[in-house]
């Protein structure tokens, strides 16, 4: 079957994710670092549940009963003007 995009923001294909998993990535964090899946401007809001399912399927592990989800601040991309406005020094990826 044809390949398909999983992470729309960073344009990461399913095949790239599966490949990254074959070469060692086993967690969401490792996958992110290897492929950038989930690192885009929407901050994983679209692909995160998919990544969880894919990892769970290929590693044969249940989606973790994590007591802490890893979302960090800012939870929304901030424009520079907004940052200037708040006068704070937070890093912004987009």
């Amino acid at each position: 079957m044809s390949d398909k995009i999983i992470c729309r923001c960073e344009e990461v294909l399913l095949s790239e994710i599966v490949e990254a998993m074959k070469t060692g990535a086993q967690t969401e964090k490792e996958l992110k670092l290897k492929t950038r899946a989930g690192m885009g401007i929407c901050q994983g809001r679209t692909c995160r549940p998919l990544l969880e399912q894919i990892i769970s399927f290929y590693t044969n592990k249940k989606i973790p009963q994590a007591s802490n989800l890893t979302f960090s601040i800012p939870v929304r991309p901030l424009s520079l003007s907004a940052l200037a406005h708040t006068g704070k020094d937070y890093k912004n990826e987009n």
């Binding site: 901050q43 809001r45 549940p49 989606i63 973790p64 009963q65 994590a66 007591s67 802490n68 989800l69 890893t70 979302f71 960090s72 601040i73 939870v75």
Partner: peptide, 24 residues
């Protein structure tokens, strides 16, 4: 659908993954 809980996470709330409720 899945619960949109990024702010709860960023605020340090504890979570559980409950598939029957749609997610974390």
């Amino acid at each position: 659908l899945y619960p949109l809980s990024e702010l709860a996470s960023a605020a340090g709330c504890e979570f559980a993954y409950i598939n029957e409720l749609g997610g974390h």
